[in-house]
Every structure is written in C-alpha cells, then in structure tokens.
C-alpha cells in the first residue's frame, strides 16, 4: 500500500516544480522558451496545492445549487408566478449522466467515475441555473422576482467562494462546504 500514500500527487508535483526550477530553468536561455517554462512551473505549483480539492468542493457546489434551485422553484410555485420546469430539465440531464460518463471521463482527464458523475451533475445544475435566472428575469416586477434574484445572487457569490478555494486563492473552510443561511 506504500504507493497509495506516499509520495502523494501534491508532493510529486511540488518536487517536480522545484527540480525543474533549479536544474532546468537556469539552462534555458532562449527568452520564449524560458517564459514557457516559468508559466509551466507556476501551474505545477498551483496544482500541487489544490490537486485533491475538486471532489469535496464539487459535491458541496452540487448540494448548494440543488437546494437553492429547489427553494426558488418552490417560491415561484407557491406564489403561483411560474410553473416549475427547471428542475425537470435538471432531472432529465441527470438521467443521461450514465450514458455520457464514458465519453466525459477520458475527454476531461477525470479518472474517478464518482467524480466524473459529480462533475456531470455540476454541469447540468449550472445549465439549469442559467435557464432559471433567465426565466425569473422575464417575470414582471414583483416581490417574488426580487427575492428570487437576491437568492440567485447570494448563491453565485457562494459558488465563487468555492471556486476561489478550488484554485487556491483562499483556504478551504468548513463553512464554505455547507450551504449558508439566507442573508
């Protein structure tokens, strides 16, 4: 089981970056090639810090998007403003997930079938959210519309926080993995 634990991918990427920076970069004289190598080293450094974050953040993103979508659909239905259809389209997409998985995984470089499924679900929820916002914006001015847009705005801010964690801009916090209460 040694290889399953040590060295982990983050260690490998970090050491690769260090070795390339110390032993190869100084030997690269041509300015264009040097710029290319520096950009690659920068990417290796970021990946070494963030390579294992997608599973937990994508799952949290999916849960947050699904919950917010359900709440907005429920509000729209309760106020009899609009018929719920967006969730239907998301469910329809989910039904196709297994079919598309085989194609999705190799194309995107995702090897873990469970993560590939979560990513496919993330894509379907994102599409559904864009359609939902479009529908809400098409409503006449009313309190329901305003509340729904506020909820979407707050959701998009939380999604941006998670993406900031995913790229290493900010540290992952437990709060960000849970849905925030409505402000």
């Amino acid at each position: 089981m040694h290889v399953m634990l040590q060295p982990d991918v983050g260690q490998l990427l970090r050491e690769l970056r260090t070795a390339l920076g110390e032993t190869v970069l100084p030997a690269v004289i041509e300015p264009g090639a040097s710029r290319q190598l520096k950009a690659a080293l920068h990417l290796l450094g970021r990946l070494s810090r963030t390579w294992d974050l997608p599973p937990v953040l994508v799952r949290a993103d999916n849960a947050d998007m699904a919950d917010a979508t359900s709440r907005i659909e429920a509000r729209l239905a309760a106020d009899m403003v609009i018929e719920p259809t967006t969730c239907d389209s998301a469910r329809e997409y989910s039904a196709r997930e297994n079919d598309s998985l085989a194609e999705l995984a190799p194309r995107n470089g995702v090897n873990d079938p469970a993560l590939a499924t979560e990513m496919a679900r993330n894509l379907s929820l994102r599409s559904a959210l864009e359609a939902l916002e479009q529908r809400v914006r098409g409503l006449p001015v009313c309190e329901t519309k305003s509340l729904c847009l506020d909820e979407l705005h707050a959701l998009f801010a939380r999604m941006t926080d998670r993406e900031s964690m995913l790229v290493g801009d900010i540290a992952v916090t437990g709060d960000a993995l849970k849905e925030r209460p409505q402000e």
Partner: peptide, 24 residues
Amino acid sequence: ANFRYADRAAKVPGSLANCFAWIA
C-alpha cells in the same frame, strides 16, 4: 501552445470575487 494561457481559468474566481464583494 502558449503556456501562459494554460491556467488562465484560475484567474476567473478572483475577478468574480471582487465583483461580488463590491456589490455585496
């Protein structure tokens, strides 16, 4: 083949975070 473009998507969250912070 420009490597500087390879990881440009990682710049997106920072820009959007600024927008949401200023608007919020």
